[in-house]
Design a protein around this nucleic acid. Sequence first.
RNA 1: GCCGGGAUGGCGGAAUCGGUAGACGCAGCGGAUUCAAAAUCCGCCGCUGGUAACAGUGUGGGGGUUCGAGUCCCCCUCCCGGCACCA
Length: 888
Amino acid sequence: MQEKYLPSEIEHAAQARWTASQAYRASEASDRPKYYCLSMFPYPSGKLHMGHVRNYTIGDVLARYHALRGFNVMQPMGWDAFGLPAENAAIANNVPPAAWTYANIDHMRTQLQALGLAIDWSRELATCKPDYYRWEQWLFTRLFEKGVIYKKMATVNWDPVDQTVLANEQVIEGRGWRSGALVEKRDIPMYFFRITQYADELLSGLDTLPGWPERVKTMQSNWIGKSVGVRFAFPYQHDGKDEQLWVFTTRADTIMGVTFCAVAAEHPLAARAAESNSALAAFIAECKQGSVAEADMATMEKKGMDTGLTVTHPLTGEAIPVWIGNYVLMSYGDGAVMAVPAHDERDFGFAQKYGLPIKQVIDHVAIVDARKALATGKNGDQPLTSEDIEKLKNFLSTNKYSTDRWHDGYDTKLGICINSGKYDSLDYTAAVDAIAADLAALNLGEKKTQFRLRDWGISRQRYWGCPIPIIHCDACGDVPVPAEQLPVVLPEDVVPDGSGNPLNKRADFVNCACPKCGAPARRETDTMDTFVESSWYYARYACPDFDGGMLDARANKWLPVDQYIGGIEHAILHLLYARFFHKLMRDEGLVSSNEPFVNLLTQGMVIADTYYREDASGKKTWFNPADVELRDGVATCKTDGAPVIVGGTEKMSKSKNNGVDPQALIDLYGADTARLFTMFAAPPEQSLEWSDAGVEGAHRFLRRLWKAGYEHLQAGAVAAYTGGELSEATKTLRRQLHQTIQKVSDDIERRKQFNTAIAAVMELMNALAKLEGDDATTRSVRQEVLEAAAALLAPMVPHVAEALYAELRPGAVMIWPPVDATALVQDEIELMLQVNGKLRGQIRVAVSADKASIEAAALASESVQKYLEGQPPKKVVVVPGRLVNIVV
RNA sequence: GCCGGGAUGGCGGAAUCGGUAGACGCAGCGGAUUCAAAAUCCGCCGCUGGUAACAGUGUGGGGGUUCGAGUCCCCCUCCCGGCACCA
């Protein structure tokens, strides 16, 4: 055995051995229980970053642990290879996105392999390859024919200078990121997945996922946003014809408080009013500026303009003015809302700003009761005293509805109706029921379940994506590409220039024959949202080589995924789309399960400081932390020495250029150190603030581990302890060993918290270092501890653990150490003594001691006597195995 | 703005079911070893007062429940993630 710990030697040897023996090849033939362990596949951005290291090490720990526990493990890897960064790189460096992407994949594969992950590389896939996206196109055509995919208009960000559609990320403060031009909204036709048809199932399916974090399920549930409300109409006359303005509300109980309606700028009513009003037309044009992102819509200043038109309140017959509101979304519901300023904070602000009336129609139960009591002079049957009257008057005057300022609770659903005619004194449910019934009787509305979730628009006006398999024929319309003509192959020799989709300029791609009538036709040049590829890759890993269809029988052998690991930032979109796709594939008969991922671990983000410079136009250039020098709180760029601005600590990302390259870490200390540090620095679910400090410590521990093994083996390996008389020291160490085995198993398997598992093994090694003696029994215990420590650490640091284990037990197959229950037995335990909840001492008692004898021992102890001062205790709380609290 | 999280020593974090706050590691300080340094080993290490024993105080801020609160409840501040075209 080498005296020195030489990570690079150990790691190269181990990796060569694993490759040669195909150690991580997953087999469908095995009769052991399967464990499909999947980490979210990476976008091949160029280099591995710490987020990847963290993600894949977490997955690897779980995969290796289960393999040691006897499972038939599959852990695959692939590439989420389509996407915007490849086009940006193409524009910047004049290289085709395809070439850039493939080069990145090759580099990152090498980096991943250097991490020593237990991956079955024979299942590797890349979504930009025709043998992958072919089946995505095939499913698209199936769903198109079934009506699950349809076409409609949708609003996008339009850069009028670059003449291109912008991603939300590319809109910075309302301007295009490259041109700086004010961004406009533009309506274009797009294909949509009818995900709303599955909304109910996506919602109820969450209840079948106990292995998912509660917060993710809550977020998805809120995103789907099922709400029961009323859809109803305000009738009006136009050119002598009866027409209706439809709205949806979850607060039909406030309908008597409607003082105006607001419609989106794109609403037909708005367009009609603008025909004869140039100011209105100008306002509509202004509303069409800016990005389509909801966050922008929700934070911008709420503006509106009166259309001069009115509609009729369906229940009161009152004339209700119609306004255009820049915050009303055409794509949501009917593009119009009823406004009840008294009970909706947004409407309240709008009404205040434009001097519109505010009519209170809901009040708290307590206030209504107080008013009633004052009016009748009685509280229930009890006559009011003058003191009661005073109190009630006081209560009412301090809780008076104010139109000056919005107060929390004005939008409560727990109030009851007032100023609402026949609906007065009804509570929320009763009022909604009565109002819905009355509207239905008028044929002007009904109860409706509405979802916040919108259909999924997947058309992207970009080159580097999966071509949408549709052919446009003047005679036949939109025709799906027949299965035998698939895949529609994306040409890989294209270099985009930032002005629209270059596929439009490729006659060889665009021109084709209509599959139905044979006439000359045009191929669709939009590509699919890259979320589509990542919605089914987990299934394709089961059969990546199958060329007879999307999936074969192996899919049901492996699915559902037993453990899915990925960033919390994917809590809603990716995970919802993947769940949706699983149901689509199920309904196509491709998979038999209802949900794709049984257990989900949402890893926290790896965050790092950001640094940037801003030019005159406000455009920011981001600097990598590796290129920035911090001295006395001033940050400068290492290459030019000039200062850079310190931004916030944010998720490591391409756009902020704050990713830390783990390669340097691996080169210097080895993969095991990188893995150990990432697992030790924070629990998986928390965000991990990157810092170079601490890596040393992880490396030192591995050196100490190696040295402990080396020193023990100087006198030769022995058989691990199996029985016989033990000293106090060896007995204590064995108890700690078996407690550690229990803890590490529980930490990995149930708690999925690896930092504490590592800490426990560190403590064990610290204790081992203090064990003295070289007699046969002591050496056998030392052997037992070292063997176990190597196995317990193997999921985290597989290379060094295997190497050490091989020295300790040459030729043996590593197993997860079993717990020896007899080693855990303890005769005496220490109990804490508290007086009035404050720690005042401790006592040792027999494990078998009953409450009464513990209490007696506690009261007798000197540390308690001091505080009793001769008085009898008021109360004694005995918590078995923990403490005694004496109240005086 | 809306939805979901988070905040514990100088730093990363631990405390699993309401029961010893600060495990483990980093940094720091002291010592051993060394010609010297690195590495290694040993010890100390929340804050305040005290030579010490010890006492007080302490988990973002304010209030509450409890024999007992980092943990539960209410309110607030700040930070992070998502918001449908970054992935």
